[in-house]
Structure formats: C-alpha cells, structure tokens
Design a protein around this nucleic acid. Sequence first.
DNA 1: TCATAATATGAATGGATATTCACATAGTAT
DNA 2: ATACTATGTGAATATCCATTCATATTATGA
Lengths: 204, 204
Amino acid sequence: MHLNIKEPMTRNAQNTFQGIERAAIRLFYENGYYGTTVADITEAAGVAAGTFYLYFPSKLVLYQHILITLSKDIRSEIARRVKGATTRYEKERLGIKAFIEYARERPEIYNIIWESLHIDRRLFKEYYTSFSERYVKGLDKAAETGEIRPLDTEIVSFILMGITNFVALKVIMDLGSNNHNIDRIVDVVMDLLECGLFEPDRKN
Amino acid sequence: MHLNIKEPMTRNAQNTFQGIERAAIRLFYENGYYGTTVADITEAAGVAAGTFYLYFPSKLVLYQHILITLSKDIRSEIARRVKGATTRYEKERLGIKAFIEYARERPEIYNIIWESLHIDRRLFKEYYTSFSERYVKGLDKAAETGEIRPLDTEIVSFILMGITNFVALKVIMDLGSNNHNIDRIVDVVMDLLECGLFEPDRKN
DNA sequence: TCATAATATGAATGGATATTCACATAGTAT
DNA sequence: ATACTATGTGAATATCCATTCATATTATGA
C-alpha cells in the first residue's frame, strides 16, 4: 500500500514532518480521529495549515501512516522484550507483560489501533490477522516440541490476544481495582494458562 | 442518566420512533457514528429531517440511547441462555457460546459498543465495569463452592471477557479460518479453561 | 363540528473544517 | 550573484451537516 506521503528532504523539514506526526499521535489519542482537526494538528505542531499538505495528501493518509508506524513499533518492541526467553512459557509471560507495560507507557498506540475499526476496517483486519499469524507460528513450534498442548493454534492466538488486550484495557483505563501491580496481574494470567480455571475434580 | 428523549404517544409515532432507532443501528454499524449523518438516518427511516428532533435532542443522545438499549439486550440475552446451567463450568460454556452467537447474529451491537470508546468514554467504561462486576459475583460464588480455583476474580473476569470478545471478533470479521463451526471454537476455549495451555510436565 | 395537542415537513441557517492557492522565504549549487 | 528547488504561510474556498423553525397535517376528545 503506497500512501503518497512526501518525505522531507532537509533537516528542518524533517523536524516539521515529525512535529506533525507527534502532534497528531497525541491529539488522535486525546480526542480521537474525528475529534481532531487538521488545524488542531498544525497548531500543536507550530506550523501553518498549508504546511500539512506539503507532506500528507489528506488527514486520512496521515492516520494510516501513523497506524502502520505504530503497529510496527509495538510489534518490534514486544519481539525485543521476548527475545531472551528460551521456553514457550517464558515467551508467553514476557510477551504478555511487555504488551501491558507498553500499552501503559504509550496508551496512544493502543487507542489508535482500536479506533482503526471505525476508520479503515481493512487496516484493522490486517493488523489483527498478521498479529495472529505471527503468534500461530510460535505456537505451532511450541506444539511440535510438546511444550504446549495440542490445540487449534489459530483460535488460541485470538484467545491470547483477547486476554492481553483486555487486561491491558483494564490497566490503562483503570477499570476495577489493583491496576498498579502489573507483575501480579501477569501472575494471574500465567496461573490460568498453566492450570486452567476450574478445579480438576470439579469440572462438571 | 436522563437523556431527554421524547417518548412517542401514539401508535404511528411509535413506528416513527422505532424506524429511526432501527435505521440508526444499521447505519452506525455499517458506516460508524461519524460516517452517519442525521439526514442518512431520517432518509433510511423514511421521515423528514425535522422529525428526528421531535424525539431526540441530538445525534449523540440517540447514540447513547441505542448503546444503553443494546447493552441491556446483550446482557439479558446471555443471562437467558445461561439460565439452565447448574455448574459454573456449564455456565461458562453457555455464556461464551451465547456471546459469540449473539455477536454473529447481531454484529451491530458488538461494533456499536466498541465504538463508544471514541464517542462517550464514560459509557464505555461503565459498560465493561458493570459487565465485569456481574461476572465477578458469579465467579466469587463458584470460588466459594470450590468449583473454580482461587484466583483474583476481577482479573479473571477481564481475561474471560477478552477471550470471548476476541474470539467473537474473529468469527464476525472472519479473521483467519474455520469461523463457521462455533461449537468447535467453544470447545477449544473450554479445553484451555479446563487444562490450561501448557503441557503439565513442560512448564518451564 | 370544533378545538387542541401531537406529529410531520423540508427548506433555511450557521458553524465547522478539509483542502487549495497565490505568494513568501530559505537553502543550495553553479 | 543568480537561478532553482524545497519549504512555509494563512487567508479564501467550498462542502458538509447538525439543528432550527415556520408551516402543515393528523388524531382525539368534547
């Protein structure tokens, strides 16, 4: 997908470009895509309205550009934090923790990605589909070596994405209580992934 | 919260009112809140633009009204379908299945509730908080009787909401494959909730 | 039948806002 | 110094859209 974005050529122009990007990320987060005007963005970036269109052909393209950039960011950051782990168990723990912490540190990303469902459905689907695909690859490997039980890994990938996304939601929107101790939350998730929810002798 | 909605007094007016509601639900689903104009709604409902304001003081209030109505619908429907179950295990299975099937039958609801994050953050928080609270009550009871393992039920409620929401997302947006056999999907979820993800002897 | 309230109309209003454009400046190579 | 390109400006434009309002129709009870 080519977005027709004009890359800045000079150092000063790079500052302008990045200023627009950063202002937009903050404003899209605070007020949403529709609650943010191009004038808001240029004002926050300290440039004139027309400057915006030197680089981006439209507000929508800027949004798409930001979404794609942030998607890559979050993925590479999680990959980075998971790298050290040797077992699937440890990978899962680190991955879940990384996602929650990242979402807390940069709630913009979380929010902007979710909003894509209502702005550009194709990008939304692409994001979760490819996230799932990468997840499945890891889970399949772990299934081959017998680290995880033989389950449909595609479904499991959505289960795990759902868990991390909703637990992160709880933390960053402060729903309910006890949202400060992330390690404790991760412990509960891992406990459930280890032993399940039900008492072994009371399953039905 | 009072929304200042004018209830219709006559039978004809009730038709008008419901026509507006229904058209709005469909359009908010298809094109989102911001992609839907009041003119779109009134045209789809077959009434004049001004008629809208006989009943709703603003487009936002209509949205809030719809959100609250649909929240109640989905909750009562799930409660209804879960009623028969005696064990927590069965309650969980029926609840998850009911949610996925309901989301598939009426994807409007699912979509409209999610969009509230970017339209009325308070309603969004309220929805998930109260959904969680009700969930916690059931889980706490099950913990008392020893049906489920002793875990932080508030965190577990978000884990379970995350699982059902994302699995439903997969089904209704047809992400990945095998989205037709809901029973099979529910089986995988219940299997994971029963036995966990990892092989017992390979946990780390 | 008449009076009154409820319901319905759709053109007009006013404000917002994405985008354009004619013009201005800054940097750079020759 | 000159010419050229990249960058920047902000007022003007044109469209869109929520909401209002003067007016019309319909239903109901006396």
